[in-house]
Design a protein around this nucleic acid. Structure first.
Length: 416
DNA sequence: TCTGGGGTCCTAGGACCC
DNA sequence: TCTGGGGTCCTAGGACCC
């Protein structure tokens, strides 16, 4: 088992087109430039933490030449596809885990595994400009651990292999328990209270003890750390829920203003559903005020609308979301965030209903033509009327160009 | 002034059934 | 006084991940 993990991914994507920033402190911000979602090593060294509100570090921009980018997900998604395709060219058995990370299956008996990893790491960087760390080990949890060693120590040249008990035990004893994949802040604190400092300390517990304290998730992590892979960690490419939500730059109190926004979220959910050939029965809409403004009146609520027949029709999903919105909307609150989740997704063949009043064949033809229009002309080419002009400008003060996905913003090279 | 977004799974408890 | 037993399904909340 192996894992290929992009280093400081969003920052690395920005640096590909800004090589002048290679040794500079750089951060990438979330939606509305709210908080920090990626940091270069130099920014980490300055004490900037993951998820930290940007306003707390804004002074560093002038004082310490901190470079800032608004999130540019079109760029990161495209760079991710490039990285994954280079990995696939060498190790085709992949399980993509996130935008910046993929597991790879390799045979245990491949000779010179570290060389394989080092060469792959070089190839990815040469072809895409993105530095990666690679780990090989008997289980996913140990492979993740190995990749962190590869990231931390340059001597590994981008790939660390844990392939025998001696190496495994040494790695466990050097690895802080709270950094183990599967151990979050809560579990980490609870373990710390019980004197567990390293992964090695945890592995010494007996199974019953682990089970009673941390349940099945604890057993899985504990077993994987011993070098025994758990099938439990397999994942499905098809999403079981799809969410689209956003915080607003300025709060909204007017129902009529919320409607087109919620309709847009619902339409996006429908598009993503159709991409994975799925259909959902449950459409959940939520709205909430700003929980950070404690002096303001607070309200948060959600409504789940269940349809009789699973659908991927944006008209039905928008309709359901708007009905839900009408139910939970209360006047005189300043709403800061809203979203739509579709769930109870079935993929492939959709079961019908005896009392269905909709001609599903005809509907499917219409939706197929909509799909192809969206594919050719972009996702805003055709809309349901209620979506209207819901484009609310987000706060994105530090956006980089869409270097790789928009011809008008392609990088220009001057040859002197 | 300014605090992201999108996922997964497990568990306990309630509703309901025979 | 004594108040079944066993099973399934669903949901909300809590943990984790990136």
């Amino acid at each position: 088992m192996g894992v290929v993990d992009c280093n400081n991914f969003y920052v690395s994507c920005e640096r590909v087109f800004r090589p002048d920033l290679r040794r500079e402190p750089v951060v990438v911000l979330s939606n509305n430039d709210g908080c920090i979602i990626a940091r270069s090593n130099e920014a980490k060294a300055m004490g900037i933490t993951m998820g930290q509100p940007f306003f707390q570090v804004r002074h560093l921009v002038d004082q310490h030449k901190l470079h800032v980018f608004s999130a540019n997900f079109a760029l990161y998604g495209d760079m991710s596809r490039r990285v994954m395709s280079v990995v696939r060219s060498e190790l085709p058995e992949m399980e993509i885990y996130s935008i910046d990370e993929t597991f790879v299956r390799v045979d245990d008996d491949v000779p010179r595994l570290q060389e394989v990893g080092i060469n792959l790491s070089k190839k990815v960087e040469r072809w895409t400009g993105i530095p990666v760390s690679i780990g090989f080990a008997p289980s996913k949890t140990l492979a993740k651990m190995a990749s962190k060693f590869a990231k931390k120590y340059v001597g590994y040249k981008g790939c660390c292999v844990i392939d025998n008990d001696e190496k495994r035990e040494k790695a466990l004893s050097l690895f802080p328990i709270q950094d183990v994949w599967g151990i979050g802040r809560r579990y980490g604190n609870r373990l710390a209270c019980r004197g567990v400092k390293t992964a090695a300390d945890f592995v010494r517990w007996d199974e019953k003890h682990v089970r009673s304290e941390f349940g099945l998730p604890g057993i899985v992590t504990w077993t994987e750390l011993k070098g025994i892979p758990c099938e439990y960690l397999e994942m499905d490419v098809n999403r079981k829920t799809i969410t689209n939500s956003r915080s607003f730059k300025n709060a909204i109190s007017d129902l009529e203003e919320l409607k087109p926004i919620v309709a847009d979220f619902a339409a996006l959910c429908a598009q993503q559903l159709r991409k994975q050939h799925g259909a959902a029965t449950d459409i959940c809409v939520f709205i909430r005020t700003n929980p950070h403004q404690e002096e303001q009146p607070q309200y948060t609520n959600s409504a789940n609308v269940r349809l009789d027949v699973p659908t991927s029709d944006l008209r039905e999903i928008i309709g359901a979301a708007l009905r839900g919105l009408e139910c939970i909307f209360r006047p005189n609150y300043a709403y800061k965030k809203a979203g739509v989740t579709v769930s109870n997704i079935v993929n492939g063949c959709v079961p019908g209903s005896l009392f269905d009043s909709i001609d599903r064949d005809k509907q499917e033809k219409l939706l197929k033509s909509l799909d192809s229009i969206h594919q050719k002309m972009g996702k805003d080419a055709v809309k349901v009327a209620i979506q209207g002009e819901s484009k609310r400008a987000a706060n994105r003060q530090y956006t980089s160009p869409a270097y790789t996905t928009n011809l008008n913003e392609i990088i220009e090279v001057k040859i002197l």
